[in-house]
Design a protein around this nucleic acid. Structure first.
Lengths: 416, 416
DNA sequence: CTGCCGGATCTCAGTCACTGATGCCCCTAG
DNA sequence: CTAGGGGCATCAGTGACTGAGATCCGGCAG
């Protein structure tokens, strides 16, 4: 029920805040190291004195967030004690409420999936669906066998415009019955867990920072390839949510001046020319896919898109052309964002990413580099996420971990 | 000579950092209040105890950054002592190196211009120009009569791609001889002042946060209408510089699918369809302006653009149509940025802004609202900057003030 | 004119996180 | 087996924030 958003008159900080912040800094350093870190190494990395590191390590050990994992001795002297994250130190539950499917995960402190499940999104009354979700969470937690007391909270990733104050979605195109339903409150009550709601693309970006390894550090844009295309933005290791939590809307960037007319009045927006549904329709129009079976609901599109990719993989030139073109168009949209924000990396992911990856990774890097306004100063890395298809739900769970354990500047400031 | 950029492995914080940070927080609160603040009010706003406020106030008074300015007694009890910024407590020098003109300002702590001057940008050797700039700064400071010891530093705003490490511009389209000239080092040595270099659009955004009053708070995009169009980005009171300081490049956002072909290969980019030079050319083509006098250098374009606006002001329908259309196109570009970042405000400014303001303010707000993805959650304020035409140079000076006195999260972290 | 009262600010310890110096512990090398 | 070196803990010490109480200042009633 805690608020994600940031208050504007900037507030001061004090001693306890500082201590908590340093704790998260150290935890983050350990988390981002591949094989654990010794106290001396930590002192060097975070710039605090060895004594402080020792004290904070003790607190972390007491809280069971880290464990001492063996020693590493090279040369003379006492070998270093390696500190590692304790996977079982904390868990979080994530739910991705997508128009087509609801995904559930239980994540451990490392960001690894302990247990996951899915269900088709019921079309019925939201209140009923919320009850089902709560039951499903209950069941999942029990099956996973994790200590319920160690579950820090529940994260919920939802599409489209959200209202952070209400913890609700606002007029989502494909979840019309959910308009302004107070999901956060309802699920907090139904599950008894502290609950956070955020956009799916933002959640995906948070997943990358938490569970994505090296590609989740620094400043990057996460391109979420789902039913729609959106992006999550991370600058200097902190996710950008925007004033109301709605950052990342890029559906109306024009990428194809000769493209189809969009409902916004312009031609060739991302939304009208590169989302999977449009690609499938193009393929049908071109005769690559059988056009007789229609149906624009989520799973249907995913299935047909997979068919399109199968054909392309098998060498069908028209299919390849469609995917190549979409890569070109998406690259243009990405360029707009990367040039505006000057990030160092673009991470692709989302449910449709897996199949399109080879086509995109072949073309996008070159196109981005060509359009990179800071080309002479630094390159632009392009990678696919290591988090996988469930990045929405995993990100939802990571919202909780991020909120509790990430060294956000916000954590230092006194609250209102 | 200090580095603006942020190191990536996040570092811890300690006691002295905390004290300095709180000092800047209090200074910022006083700065943002209209008529000064008492100690009790400060305690409420920043969340620190009255005692801490007292201690920090004393430090600020010792440093002469603030002054006690009268008392405010209403009702019984000891009247509150009002604390106000001391304009003479600190000064900064700003230089805007534009392809057409170099602008100089001396700013006081309030962000008010103490003295300013200009010169046409000499075409010669950069080394010689740097000497002239240093002389000009010297002269300006002497004429202004401010205490040289109170000058905190020199800010330099430059166009186009920059290299923050070098403190140089990289292949700027209109300052070709300045490619990779180490401006920061050269000017620091020539003037003896601590020097910061940043992009002009970023500087303009910083000017807005420092000298722009209420419209410089929170999250906003500063649209800089100059020879080119770029934007400065401020999120939660902190300016976004990007990985290499090159954030804000929006020249290749497609805003007019039927527009002219751009060198990037697409049609109707911002750069090819709404910059003043293009509008002037359009006006010439349409016969609104006399097309015989050509010349694409800076002052020439500004003059011809002023003519175009004169005609529009006088009721020339073709001229009005050209300006209206450009407002529509720019609004589309702004929408792309505001939707991606979910800011609460758009601030327009820059050398060309004054003349176009009425046409833009008439159309842009409506268009932005229509395209606002978060329309149902919050509105989008559109304002013209209060900083004026010299926003580039003023922003350059504000870079120094911001670097020394703004409560940036970065200030808390230990350095490498 | 004087005393009372309320509110703002200051004084004085007290607490707590980080730091520096010192010493113990553990391992490798000779 | 011993010397030596590096890792880590212990013990004061510093300094920023906090809480309680004292002090100061002006208005108001008598």
């Amino acid at each position: 029920m805690t608020e994600i958003r940031q208050p504007t008159p900037r507030r001061g900080t004090n001693l306890p805040r500082m201590g908590d912040f340093n704790l998260t800094v150290i935890l983050e350093a350990i988390r981002r190291s591949s094989g654990g870190l010794s106290r001396v190494e930590l002192a060097q990395i975070v710039g605090l004195s060895p004594q402080t590191i020792s004290n904070i390590s003790r607190r972390l050990l007491d809280q069971q967030l880290i464990v001492e994992a063996g020693k590493e001795g090279s040369g003379p002297g006492k070998p270093r004690t390696i500190l590692r994250l304790n996977p079982a130190g904390m868990y979080a539950v994530g739910v991705h409420l997508d128009p087509a499917v609801i995904t559930f995960v239980v994540l451990d402190l490392l960001g690894d999936v302990v247990k996951h499940s899915r269900m088709a999104t019921p079309g019925g009354d939201p209140a009923g669906v919320i009850t089902s979700i709560a039951e499903q969470i209950q069941a999942l937690v029990e099956e996973s066998g994790v200590d319920a007391a160690k579950i820090a909270g529940l994260g919920v990733a939802v599409p489209g415009p959200i209202d952070l104050d209400e913890g609700s979605v606002v007029e989502p195109p494909l979840l019309t019955r959910w308009n302004r339903v107070r999901i956060r409150e309802a699920l907090a009550e139904a599950t008894g867990l502290e609950t956070l709601v955020d956009k799916d693309v933002t959640s995906a970006a948070v997943a990358e920072t938490w569970a994505g390894g090296a590609s989740g550090a620094g400043s990057f844009v996460f391109m979420y390839m789902g039913t729609g295309i959106g992006c999550g933005i991370v600058l200097n290791d902190e996710v950008v949510r925007g004033t109301s939590g709605n950052a990342g809307e890029i559906g109306h960037i024009v990428v194809d001046p000769e493209g189809p007319l969009c409902d916004c009045g312009l031609s060739g927006c991302v939304k009208s020319s590169c989302i999977p549904q449009v690609l499938v329709a193009e393929a049908e129009a071109a005769g690559v896919l059988d056009g007789s079976r229609h149906g624009a609901d989520g799973p249907e599109v995913q299935e047909r898109f997979a068919e399109l990719c199968d054909k392309a993989d098998a060498g069908d030139e028209q299919a390849i052309a469609i995917l190549d073109k979409s890569a070109t168009l998406v690259a243009r949209a990405v360029s707009v964002v990367t040039n505006a924000l000057d990030v160092e990396r673009v991470v692709f992911g989302g449910p449709f990413w897996g199949r399109m990856a080879p086509y995109f990774l072949d073309r996008v890097p070159g196109l981005l580099d060509k359009n990179n306004a800071a080309r002479m100063i630094h390159g632009l890395e392009v990678v696919g996420t290591g988090v996988g298809e469930d990045v929405g739900a995993i990100g939802a769970a990571c919202l909780v971990l991020e909120h509790m354990l990430a060294p956000r500047a916000q954590r230092l400031l006194l609250e209102g």
